[in-house]
Design a protein around this nucleic acid. Sequence first.
DNA 1: GCGAACACGTGAACC
DNA 2: TGGTTCACGTGTTCG
Lengths: 489, 489
Amino acid sequence: MGEKFWLIEEDKALVESVLGAEAVQFFVWLASSNILSEFAAPAGVAGVQDGLSKVVEGSDWTYAIYWQVSTSKSGKSALIWGDGHCRDPRGTEKMDGNDYRDQRFAGGDRRKQALQKIHACFGGAEDDNVAAKLDSVSELEMFYLTSMYYAFPFDKPSTPSQAFNTSRTIWVSDPRSCSENYQSRASLAKSARIETVVFVPFKSGVVEIGSGKSLSEDPNVVQMVKTSITPNVVHPKTAPKIFGQELSLGGGKSGPISISFSPKVEDDSLFVSDSYELQALAGYGPSNGYRSDDGEVKLFPQRNQGILSSLEQAKDDSLMLSDDRRPRKRGRKPANGREEPLNHVEAERQRREKLNQRFYALRAVVPNISKMDKASLLGDAIAYITDLQKKIRIMEAEREMVNDRQKQPAVTDIDLQERHEDAVVQVSCPLDVHPVSRVIKAMREHQIVAQESDVSLTENGEVVHTFSIRTQGGDAEHLKEKLTTALFN
Amino acid sequence: MGEKFWLIEEDKALVESVLGAEAVQFFVWLASSNILSEFAAPAGVAGVQDGLSKVVEGSDWTYAIYWQVSTSKSGKSALIWGDGHCRDPRGTEKMDGNDYRDQRFAGGDRRKQALQKIHACFGGAEDDNVAAKLDSVSELEMFYLTSMYYAFPFDKPSTPSQAFNTSRTIWVSDPRSCSENYQSRASLAKSARIETVVFVPFKSGVVEIGSGKSLSEDPNVVQMVKTSITPNVVHPKTAPKIFGQELSLGGGKSGPISISFSPKVEDDSLFVSDSYELQALAGYGPSNGYRSDDGEVKLFPQRNQGILSSLEQAKDDSLMLSDDRRPRKRGRKPANGREEPLNHVEAERQRREKLNQRFYALRAVVPNISKMDKASLLGDAIAYITDLQKKIRIMEAEREMVNDRQKQPAVTDIDLQERHEDAVVQVSCPLDVHPVSRVIKAMREHQIVAQESDVSLTENGEVVHTFSIRTQGGDAEHLKEKLTTALFN
DNA sequence: GCGAACACGTGAACC
DNA sequence: TGGTTCACGTGTTCG
C-alpha cells in the first residue's frame, strides 16, 4: 500500500479541503482496512465499456459506472469499480462555459494534487494515473475518478448493494439525501452538481448513472440501460410497478428516493415470476394493517435491517396511536363495559398488530404468493425457503467443484537442469488445462504429428505456440478449417 | 447413444428377467430422455476413491458410492455417479461361500449379458466395460455396477437428492420401503441383499453406503464417512439431534426411515448456526399442535411437496378427530351453552390448527430462531429469506463472472501457413490463461530471457514446456527455488 | 345461507 | 406480581 496521505498533515488538509472531511474519513478507513486490495481487480468484461459510453453519449446522463460484484478470498463480497464512462465536460454545451472555466481555475490543480495523493495511497503506479494526464481536474472529474477507489461491501447497507440485493432499480432524485447509504460519494456528487443518480441492477453488478439534471423516474431510461449493456444483461420482460405506486423510503429525512419495482428476474424455472400483481392486497392490503401514524404507506423497508428495525419500532409507533385510529371492518365491537382489563386488551391488540405487520413484511419478500391467505402465505414462504436452500446447496456444490478443478495445480512438475553456460527449464502440465489442448487434440485426431514445436512470447502478453507439421496429402486448407472449427466448436 | 436393448424383444426379456420390469422401465426412460448424456461426466476428484475404499474396507459396509452434483447446460442439476468402491465378495467371509457360488452359477452369465446390454445402451465403449472383465456377475455387482447409469435429478424427489437438499444424513434401514424415492435401485438392492443404506450429504454431492447387515443408526458411522472422504468434506462441529429424538418420516408406509439431524454447515458468516437447540419447543412444541391422529409426531415432511401436501391433508386429518383429543392447556374453557354455532367454532378451530401447523413447519426450515415467539419467528424467517436471496444473487453474479471469463476464448488466434512439404500452425493465447504463465512471469521478474523454447507432448497426456535460459551469475539453484516458490506460492 | 377468513376480547399459562 | 404469549369462542365481512 502506497503512501498514506493522511499521515502528512499538509496533504491531509489538502485532500480534506477538496473532498471534505467525510470523504477523507472514508478513504482512511478503506485504505487501512485493506478492503480494496482484498478483492481481486475484476477482469474487464468485454462490451461493458461500449455499453456505458452508449448510455452516456447523446443522453441526459453525465456518467455511468459499472459496479461489479467481487468476492475476496475470505468469502466476503462487495461491489467494486468495474468500469466507467464519463462525458468529457470540455466541449459540451451542457455546462456553462464560463462557470466551468471558473471552476477549473478555482481549484483544478489542488484537486489534481489531491487525486494523485489518493491514487498513490491505493498503490497506483505513477504511469497509469489518470490525474497525471489531466492538466486540471474538475469537480465532476473528481467525483468520477475517486469512484474508482470506492467499495460497497455487502455487509454494510448501501444504495448500490441494496439495488443489487433486491434486484430493483433505485432512482435517487436527490443524492444528498441518502448520504448514509451512499457513503461520502453523496457529498462529492453534490460538489459535482449531480442531481439524479440511478442504480440499475445486473446479474453481476450494478450500473450507476448520474446526471446534472434533475430527472424524474423514467422506465425507458432503465430499459435503455439494461439493453445497452449487453454482457450479463438482465433481460426484463415488462416492468410493472407492483403496487402501481411509488413508495418513499422509510427512515426520517431520507428524502424523495423513489423505487420503481421491476420484477425479480429469475431465469431458473424455480422462480417463475409471472403473476406478480399481488392483487389481493386490495383486500387486506396496507390500507388495513400496515399504515403508520403519519399516513405514509410503508411497505418495503429499504433493507434487511430496515425490515426488522421498522418492525421493532412499530410497537412504539402504535403505542402512541389513539384508540379509534383504525377503521375496524371486522371483528367484535369494542363493547367495553368495564375498564379493568383495558391494559390487557391493548397489549393483545399490539401483539396482533405486530404479527400482522410481519405477515405483510413476509408477503413482501416471498414471490409467487398463491393466495392471500395467512396459511397459504406461510405455506408459500416455506416452499420458497426450501427452494432457495436447495438452490444454494446446488450452487455451492458447483462452486466447490470449480474450486477443486482449479485447485488441481496447473503445473504438475518443474525441473531445472544446469548445463555449461545455460540451463534448461522443463515445465509440464496436464493437457486438458492447456489452452491449445483442443488444437492438439484436433491434430491428434487427424493423426498429425508435430515435427517441431515452439513457444514464444510477444510484447503484448500473448503466448504463441508454433507447430510445424507434415502435410499429408496436401489438404492444408482442409486442416485449417478442421482446426478452427475444433477451436470455436 | 448406443444400441437400445429394449428394441430387441429377446434382449429386453433378458434384462427384465435380471433386473425386473421396474428397472428396465427406468433405464428406458433414462436413455430416451437423454439425461445422462446431458450432464458432463464429472472429472474425478482426487482422493474420493481413496476415501470410499477407506470407508468400505474393514467395516460392515459393502459398498460406497459418491453421487456428485452435476449441472447440465440447460441449467438443470442432478446427482450422478461420481465414483464408487465395492468390496470384492470373493474372498470375504461375510457371504456364505456355498450360497455365493450358487448365486453366481444361477444367473451370473445372464447378469453379465444384461449388464453389457445396458452398458452398450448408454454409449459405453467395449474396452472400458467392467462387465466384460468379469467372468460372471453377482447380484451385488449387478446392483453396484448399474448404479453408474443412474441419475437423480433435483426435479424429482429422491432419497439422495433429499439428503443433499436438506444436508441431513438419511439412514434407510429398509431399502425396499422407499422405492418411490429411490427408483428401481430399491428392488435391485433387495436382490443384492442390501439391508441398510445411508446417505451422507457433502458439499458437492452425497455419499451412499450400503451394507448387507441390518444396522441401526449410528452417528459414529456418519462421522467416519465424513472424515474419511477428505476433499470437499463437510466438517461437522457436533451432531446434536435437534429435538433429541428420531423422527420417522411421514407418509403412510414409507417405513422405518429415520433421520438424524446433523447441523446445517455454513462457512459463510451469514448463517452462524450456533444455537440450534430450539429449546422453546418444550413450551409450544409438537406435543401441542402438530400431533396427528395416530399419535405419531410428524415434524419434517420429507420433501418440499411433502410439506405442502401434508399441510393440505392435515385439514382432512383433523376433521376426523374427536373433540377432546387435545389437552387444552390454554384458552377459554369450552363453556358451550348452546350448540347452534358449534359448526363455526369447529371451523375456526381447524383454521387455527392449520395456521399453527404451518408455523411449526416454518420453524423447521428456518435456522437460528431467536425466540419461539410467533412474531419473532416471522421476523427471523423474513431476515432469513432476504439473506438467502442476497446470497443467491451474489453467487449468481460470481457464476456469471466465471462464465464470462471462460467465454473469453482461451485461444485468440490461429494461423496456418503452408510451405513446401510441411505447414506451420501458429496458435496464440493470452498469457494469463496459460498454465506456465507464473513461470514465465517469474522468469520475467528475474529478467531471464529464454533463448530457446519448445513444447512437446508425452504419452500420458502431459504437455512439457522446455526453456533454455542463460544463467546469469550461475546461481541456477537459486533460480530453481524462485521458480518453484512462484509456482506453489 | 354458508363457508372461509379475519379481528376482537377474554381466560389462562408461563416467565 | 405484572408482562407476555397463546388458544379459544365469538362477531363480522365477503363472495
